[in-house]
Design a protein around this nucleic acid. Structure first.
Lengths: 190, 190
DNA sequence: TCAGAGTACTCATTTTGTTGAGTATGCAAT
DNA sequence: ATTGCATACTCAACAAAATGAGTACTCTGA
């Protein structure tokens, strides 16, 4: 059950509402823990019930009120406890890889198309993450920031996400190219 | 529901029992779709019920009988259909990244230890995948194999897995080093 | 003025994934 | 002789994640 911890980690950056998390999750924490809005709302309620986060109602005009949450002492202690328990091994879990695995038995055309599309998505995501990196370190150069910055967690995970997206981009394009070449080869009666 | 398709894709390589899949899943398809033995057995039964795979009982001596499964025509058609439906975006989902994200608020020592451990796991996995790559392409050089081999799906996904593990390895070591340096910096009263 | 998009959520259900405990047999080492 | 490991599975219960369908109000543009 790491969604709760992902939420706690995200709330280390300040006060957020469920709605804000649901938006921001896509660029920040969502690089390594994706969740739907409904899950976030539910998790925040549960965390509040357990006293790991505290919420306050913010009355707004011209738009619905919202609840802003922050981590409590108990929440921080829970994060601490979580960080000290052994991590589970991670793995990629991806539809598209399943399709590529099966590509020898089926029509490669839709797989090629999806690889192309995925490459574009990965490129766009890489750009967003690259910009986020710049924003996170501010003025300082990277080495300096990593040595002395006081909030480097998001920076470090963002670097991982960026490397992943770049890797995805490269692999998708190379794989698509290989499959395209084979279609040509087979057609020319190799 | 891509587990079923991962199983179908795995069965493209021949006939396997649930037990064999449960073992082999760790090195082949499991690079992008992890599953516990129980899930595989259950999925195979379901697939058999739907006629997407067919099983036959193999009587053995000195050990329990087993059921060997292969993909049927209908199963292949299902894979074809699956490959043609748009892929969902993928993302990393990883405990350890959550911990790194939170590292500014907690004790970094256990996080550093887990990064080190994860690097070792990734290195070992990368080596296994590297060997698998060599085994899959056999005598041929890579370019030749990719152009003319008749079963390249597993090779292509294996390359992705290898790149991922290498990336994980690098990131873990670099991140651990950065965190270690900071501990020193803080201690020396920066 | 009315459709559409944005803010801010809730509730219910289903689908997946995980955990834990069994069953049964044979082989090899202690 | 008995422990422990490998083969080959099954069943039940639970936790987590994904899906779908709302609610309600406001602002903006056609």
């Amino acid at each position: 059950m790491a969604l709760r911890h992902a939420v706690l980690a995200a709330l280390l950056d300040g006060e957020f509402s469920g709605y804000q998390l649901a938006k921001g999750f896509d660029i920040g924490v969502a690089n390594f823990w994706h969740a739907l809005p409904q899950q976030l709302y539910a998790e925040l309620s549960r965390l509040e019930g357990e006293g790991l986060v505290a919420g306050r109602e913010v009355v707004q005009e011209g738009r619905p009120n919202k609840r802003m949450f922050h981590v409590t002492e108990a929440g921080l202690a829970e994060l601490e406890r979580f960080a000290a328990t052994p991590a589970k091994p991670s793995f990629i879990r991806d539809d598209l890889l399943v399709k590529v695995q099966a590509v020898d038995g089926i029509d490669p055309a839709p797989v090629i198309a999806q690889l192309q599309e995925r490459a574009a998505v990965a490129e766009a995501k890489a750009e967003v993450l690259g910009k986020l990196l710049v924003r996170l370190r501010g003025e300082a150069d990277e080495g300096e920031f990593l040595r002395t910055g006081r909030r480097i967690g998001p920076y470090l995970t963002c670097r991982r996400g960026l490397a992943f997206e770049r890797e995805t981009y490269d692999w998708c394009l190379r794989t698509a190219e290989i499959l395209r070449q084979r279609v040509v080869t087979v057609r020319s009666g190799e």
